[in-house]
Amino acid sequence: MGDGLVQARDLRKRFGTFEAVRGIDVDVAQGEVFGFLGPNGAGKSSTMRMIACVSPRTSGSLQVLGMDPDRDGPRIRARLGVVPQLDNLDTELSVRENLEIYGRYFGLPRRHVRAKAAELLEFARLTERAEDRVEPLSGGMKRRLTIARSLVNDPDLLLLDEPTTGLDPQARHLLWERLYQLKREGVTQIITTHYMDEAEQLCDRLVVMDGGVIVAEGSPAELIERWSTREVLELRFAPEDRPAAADLERHAERVEVLPDRALLYTADGERSQAALHAAGLRPLSALVRRSTLEDVFLRLTGRTLVD
């Protein structure tokens, strides 16, 4: 049915008695960048591993590239690119060899992988380090190499599990730029992340996942529009003159009180701020910003994404 690259229905994964993925429905279309956004333990990696055909599903149906992972695992994997959550580069090989040998695992001919490796080294900006061992590379370089490696078989579908976790901002932006280039080239991508900015930057469509279930689905803009207000007024108060939540709620559609600050969800932050001032409330600081997926997540689960 359909021309989706991934189609899951009531997909479940149990480890012993613990159910990590508790019945999710997913459709990923050709050419899109699809995201799983959720905190640690949400079941993102478990889902990705099932899609990558390295973890058998417990129940439900799953089609990847129109095939069933239980039956056609190797044929599906031949057309996937996988960037696992933890780098698993071959530390006994050089940077270039990591690409060439990995390509050979796919049965690609020597000449083909040699040319491909040169091209991917350029793509990952690692040509200068081609003959070095992997160990001394920085975290960002290793990640870029892992992404380059995942492209060695010209995959139809790229699976990226937390591609930028643990990287500094500069390395992240370089990676995002590379992923964006792939998107322009038409490579379908599935990305997991617990960074809302990453999800907003990269994903055409995403699902918010928590506790093994999908709690919302849509494009970043749709999700924000549906589950949050246009603007957010962030307030910090001195501990002694913290107002009651009820006093804040009068000036916003919704209020979230976090340990360190209060968030007022409102269509017009400036106006709410003026109204608060008129009511005699004096926060230490006040900041008006646009709603993000972080706010969506807070609304849906009552918790923050990254703690």
Partner: peptide, 14 residues
């Protein structure tokens, strides 16, 4: 330590 076999199993290798 290397998780080398994990990397291999993501390819058609079994």
């Amino acid at each position: 330590y290397n998780r080398l076999y994990d990397a291999m199993l993501a390819t058609p290798l079994g």
